[in-house]
Design a protein around this nucleic acid. Structure first.
Lengths: 160, 160
DNA sequence: ATCAGGCATGTTATAACATATCAACCCCGA
DNA sequence: TCGGGGTTGATATGTTATAACATGCCTGAT
């Protein structure tokens, strides 16, 4: 499970690490990590928290990489399909994937204070939801598992 | 876990049952189940699947119960806060609660074919996500657990 | 060499989801 | 009767997401 996201870390190394993995992954899978897509991923990695599509778009626009909504949504779709980013349904926002390995069923701890997101893995079909699905004859294709609350830092915060 | 929603049942009885429970619950808690709120719940119960706020609004409007978005959102907020309905985050849509008991941490099986929704319960802090949260010092306040896929009926369907 | 096809991007417009704000009303208790 | 809380009415706007169509660019087949 080892979540990531609420702990201090060498951010520069973390980012370059993840980017490199993303490039390898795309090369291996025949995917085209174009400048807009790469830059979108960089922004997500850099923030290390959930960003709305329009937040991203503003950044991209400021850098001359496109200013209309489809630009952001296309880049995000690509990243999500490539497994390099995830959508946080409870926030309508997006985060970079921090488990750069193979396909996985992600689960998230989402801080309502700072929108920081820690990613963990779930066993999709195991557990009680899987039992319920099997009992009902329901075929699971995708799972959304998100816990909202306060991260250690924000628990200290007066604003909390 | 016993999911509900993909099985045949006596719908009329189911509805009147749930409505009665909702009324009892509101009376006990000093909540005011007004006509708009009650009708909104009825529509959700009747459909037995995820409805968008604007779908609901259209129904309400057709019945002369208000035609502007706030009408629907207020009613839905009330029902969600009262525990009589849930929001399906992955669809930005709403369903009637089928576990009319006390507060619970719901989990959903959502059919992408017909938008039918079965509700189950999760143990919020148990399981692997709870482990990860404790390990990270994260304080969970709310969980979103949603599985998307195909219900038994839609698995047969040619359109699937 | 050229042209068809795929893929990425540019551009405009609009759909779909959600909330802020203020006014009016109604009921109940002081 | 006055005032306050809660509900509704109404207008406007904010936020998130996609449809639809045009353009450019590379590449491989002929």
């Amino acid at each position: 499970m080892s979540p990531r996201g609420f702990s201090c870390h060498d951010h520069a190394t973390c980012m370059s690490d993840m980017l490199e993995r993303a490039e390898t992954r795309c090369r291996d899978k025949g995917l085209n990590l174009t400048p807009v897509r790469r830059r979108t991923l960089e922004i997500l990695l850099d923030e290390h928290r959930a960003l709305g599509a329009y937040d991203l778009l503003a950044q991209l626009a400021a850098e001359g990489l496109g200013s209309q909504p489809p630009v952001a949504y296309r880049a995000l779709d690509f990243l999500v399909n490539a497994g390099l980013a995830h959508k946080i349904e409870a926030l309508n926002a997006y985060v970079a994937c921090t488990h750069s390995g193979a396909d996985h069923a992600p689960a998230f701890l989402i801080c309502r204070g700072c929108r920081a997101v820690a990613e963990a893995s779930t066993a999709p079909a195991s557990g009680r939801l899987g039992d319920a699905a099997r009992a009902a004859g329901f075929q699971i294709e995708r799972t959304v598992v998100e816990a909202q609350g306060l991260c250690p830092d924000c628990q200290q915060d007066p604003a909390a």
